[in-house]
């Protein structure tokens, strides 16, 4: 049996299933969502025909009793909180993860592999389950408060659940491996003789770190920041379980519109906004990568 000889035919046949499946079930849905976001909402779920930018207007303005547009910051606050919490998650992961990534690269090969394995395990385990575990830790009768209460150190609950702090903790926890792995990858490629050269030229530990190690790990740092930011800004599980629906983020807001609120166009508009944030982050990464390419000649 012989396969088609023409390489173009072969390519077409090999790629066709992937193009079809992702095209029909991923690209087309995104376009439908975009179209939906410009349609009128059907109170029973779904959309009614007709073009309107109502959904986008709703993000910033509300109609008051006199049918006049009135600035309403309620969604702006959610957007701001999403970006802020995502940025906090990024910095939390960076500060927590960088020394770890560096420490791993300085170990011998066998130990490195073991530690990397330990870093990746949580990433591949169920996010819902891992986030749920934090309820057991943070809640009023959780493993932190229970002993403190029985020892009489505290009387009233610390109220750790359903706060921005709880959501941020959950986000950092969820996406920490995504920061450590790319930074490890770029630090691992770093020629350690450059650090020796820096020390030889009178750079102290801190100076060598600042002048040589961090600049050369920059691609990994940027990649890690993007990888953490993108899922954080659209997170649903952490704000839902640990924010308890009180600290809404974009992800939970979108979910609400398709679940209980039944305002599909508005949910679509918010989803488009989320995609815009993601695009901006990716373009920023692309630009800095291109700049690096130009610099290195």
């Amino acid at each position: 049996m012989n396969l088609p000889q023409n390489p173009a035919t072969r390519r077409f046949l090999g790629l066709l299933p992937a193009w079809l499946v992702i095209g029909i079930f991923m690209v087309m849905p995104m376009m439908i969502l975009l179209v939906f976001s410009f349609m009128e909402s059907d109170p029973y779920g779904g959309v009614d025909p007709g073009f309107t930018i109502e959904a986008y207007r709703q993000i910033l303005f509300d109609l008051n009793f006199d049918d006049e547009l009135e600035f309403d910051p309620v969604y702006l606050i959610i957007i701001g909180r999403s970006i802020l919490l995502a940025l906090i998650a990024v910095f939390g992961c960076l500060i927590f993860g960088f020394p770890v990534a560096y420490y791993i690269t300085r170990q011998e090969r066998r130990v490195q592999n073991m530690l990397l394995y330990l870093v990746t395990i949580p990433f591949w385990t169920n996010l819902l389950v891992r986030t749920y575990a934090w309820i057991l830790i943070l809640s009023g009768d959780g493993v932190i408060e229970q002993p403190l209460k029985s020892l009489g150190i505290i009387e009233n609950s610390l109220e750790m659940m359903y706060t921005n702090g709880a959501v941020a903790t959950g986000l950092v926890y969820s996406y920490l491996p995504l920061m450590v792995l790319p930074i490890y990858a770029s630090l691992e490629k770093l020629d350690f003789r450059l650090v020796e050269a820096a020390h030889d030229l009178y750079a102290s530990r801190f100076q060598a770190f600042k002048q040589v190690i961090v600049p050369l790990a920059k691609p990994g740092i940027i990649a890690g920041c993007i990888l953490v930011f993108v899922p954080s800004v659209g997170a649903f599980i952490a704000p839902d379980l640990l924010g308890g629906g009180k600290k809404l983020m974009l992800g939970s807001l979108i979910h609400l519109q398709f679940a209980s609120s039944r305002n599909w166009p508005f949910g679509g508009a918010i989803a488009m906004l989320l995609l815009a944030f993601v695009m901006i982050a990716l373009l920023w990464q692309l630009r800095s990568a291109r700049k690096r390419m130009e610099e290195s000649g």
Binding site: D191, R193, L194, E196, A197, A198, H199, D200, L201, Y202, A203, S204, R205, Q211, V212, L216, S296
Partner: peptide
């Protein structure tokens, strides 16, 4: 440490900061 010694090194593969 190396940064407190009055010696400098020319490295085998140069180790220039890229």
């Amino acid at each position: 440490p190396p940064y407190e010694r009055p010696v400098n090194t020319v490295f085998q593969h140069y180790a220039l900061f890229p």
